[in-house]
């Protein structure tokens, strides 16, 4: 749980002050290297922190002025529902961050000899 909070806080700060999306890959990766104890834990840390962040953030925006654009983008992508688009946003973050988290852990596991 502590890992999730650390990862989330770093992500929030970096995402607020810079426009780059790939923090959700890089930050969980680094957390995976430094914090995780198992591959699954690293996956869960990334998935929960980035997935929750993008889910809550897009939901918040949906209720504060982004509902029009979300509906249009949903149609553009072929989802037709903006709520599905929120889910897709969260899912993409969760999966990218999850996999990069475990990649981070595996990297450490490969480098550090027991």
């Amino acid at each position: 749980m502590k890992d999730v909070i650390i990862c989330l806080v770093i992500l929030v700060l970096l995402q607020i002050f810079t426009p780059f999306w790939w923090w959700i890959i890089l930050v969980p990766l680094v957390c995976g290297v430094l914090l995780a104890k198992t591959g699954w834990q690293a996956f869960r840390t990334g998935m929960l922190s980035a997935g929750l962040l993008w889910l809550v953030w897009s939901l918040y925006l949906m209720f504060s002025g982004s509902n029009i654009i979300a509906q249009r983008i949903a149609i553009m992508i072929g989802l037709n529902s903006r709520w599905l688009l929120v889910l897709m946003t969260a899912l993409i973050a969760a999966l990218s961050a999850g996999f990069s988290g475990s990649a981070g852990y595996f990297l450490r596991a490969a480098l550090v000899k027991k």
Partner: peptide
């Protein structure tokens, strides 16, 4: 595009 902090959501 889907990044809430700078993508289409903004």
């Amino acid at each position: 595009l889907l990044n809430p902090s700078a993508g289409f959501w903004q």
